[in-house]
Design a protein around this nucleic acid. Sequence first.
DNA 1: GGAACAAGATTGTGGAACAATCAATGCCAT
DNA 2: ATGGCATTGATTGTTCCACAATCTTGTTCC
Lengths: 227, 227
Amino acid sequence: MTTDPGSSPALHWPGPEPAGAARRVYLGILQDLEGGRMVPGQRLIETDLAARFEVGRNAVREAMQHLAVRGVVDLSPNRSPAIRRLDLAETFEVLDVAEAMTRLVARAAAKGFGDEHGALLSAALDELGEAAPGGEAAAFSRARRGFYRALLLIGGNRELQRLFPAIGIHIIHAQYPSPRLRGIRLADYQAIARAIVARDADAAERAATGHVDNVRAVIRELTTVHP
Amino acid sequence: MTTDPGSSPALHWPGPEPAGAARRVYLGILQDLEGGRMVPGQRLIETDLAARFEVGRNAVREAMQHLAVRGVVDLSPNRSPAIRRLDLAETFEVLDVAEAMTRLVARAAAKGFGDEHGALLSAALDELGEAAPGGEAAAFSRARRGFYRALLLIGGNRELQRLFPAIGIHIIHAQYPSPRLRGIRLADYQAIARAIVARDADAAERAATGHVDNVRAVIRELTTVHP
DNA sequence: GGAACAAGATTGTGGAACAATCAATGCCAT
DNA sequence: ATGGCATTGATTGTTCCACAATCTTGTTCC
C-alpha cells in the first residue's frame, strides 16, 4: 500500500489535482481561503510562498496554474497572482455556468445510479448533515465537495469529472460565507439525492436547477440588503 | 508598439492561454495536432520539445499544463505527457458536456446580442464559409474557433469564456477528421447565428442542441461502419 | 519461458543567475 | 503645490544546472 502523506483525503480522486510539491502549496492556499485567512484581491508573492511551504518557485508556479484553472486566483503576465474577486455580475455568470454543469451532473448520476452506489451517496449525505448545523465552514466545504465527488463518480462521465471542479465555486463560498447558504444547501442536496436514488433524471435535473436558483436568491438578498 | 511574434492572431483573447515562451510550445503542439503531425496516444518528451522550440524545460511543463486543461494531453505523474486518446464512450461523454456548454453559449449570445455585434458575427460566418468547402483542416479549425469566440464575446459571460475552451473538442476533431463533419457544422452554425441575431434564446439553444446531435450522429456512423 | 536484476531514459525538484517588467518613490521644473 | 519624469526596488519570466526519484527497457540467470 502506498503511504498517502498528510492531509489528503482517503479516496484518490483521478482529477486534475497537482501532485507532489505543488500539491502542498495548492492545498495550503485552498485551506487558507476556506479558513478566511486569505481574502479576495489579496496578492500572492512567489518567493514568500516558496519559503513558507519549503518548495521551489517552480512548484509555486505550478500550484498557481492549478488554482487559476479552478478559478481561485487570477493570473496576469508580470503581475503577482491575486485571489480572484467577483463583482456581482460575474458572480451570477459563475452561477449560470454552475447551473448548466450541475444539471448535467445530477442527470448523469441519476442515469448511472446503481445499487452499489447507495452506501457512497448516503455516506456523503451523512457527512453533510453533521457538518451543516453549526460546524466549521471548512468541514462543510469538505462535505460539499464529497457530495459532488460522489455524484460525479456515480455519473461516470470522465469529461465532467475533469471540468466540473474548474467552476469558480470556491470563490463564491469565500466571498459569501453566509451560514444561510448552508441550510439551503443541505435541503437541496437531499432533494437531488432522492431523485438520483429514484433514477429519475428529469427530477434530478429539476432539483439541481432549483438548488442553484436558491443560491442565487440568497446571494441577491445578501447583497441588496447591504446599503 | 509591442512586437507580437509569429503566428498569434490579431485579437487578444483574454482567456487562459499561456504567454511568452510557453505559448510557442502550446501553439506548436496544437498546430501539429491540427495538421495531423501528432496522433492520439503519442508521447511527448520534455527535453525534445525544449530543444525543438528553443525554450527551457520549465516552459514546456507550463505548456503541458495548459494543454492538459484544454483536454489535449493526458498528464500523469512520472510519465511522459501523451496526446489524449478518447475511446468511444469518452467521446460521447465529451459531447454531453459540450452540449450543455454550447447550449449556454448560444443562449447567452442570443440574450446579449446587440446591433454592434452584427459585423463580428457575419465576419465569423464568412470565414467559416470560405474554409468549409475544400480548404485545409487547419483553416476550418481556426474559423470554428473564431465563431465560438464571437459567440462568447457576444454573450459576455466571463466564466463561460474561461471554461468553454477547456472542453476536449480539439481531440475530437483530431480523432475524427472527417470532411463530413465540416459541412454539417457550417449549416448548424448558420442556424445558431440566425437565432442569435433574432435574439431568440430558446431557438438558439435548440439549434445548439441540434448541432451536437448531428455531430453525435456522424461520429456514430463513422465508428459503426468500421468493422 | 519467466523472474530478478542492471542500465538507461525521463520526469520531479530545488536552486542560482540574470533579464524584463512593473510599482513606488523622490526629484525637478513649471 | 503639482504634474511630469527618472531612478530604484520588488517581483515575475526564463534558462540552465544538478541531482534525486521513478519508470522503462534490455539482459542474465535459473
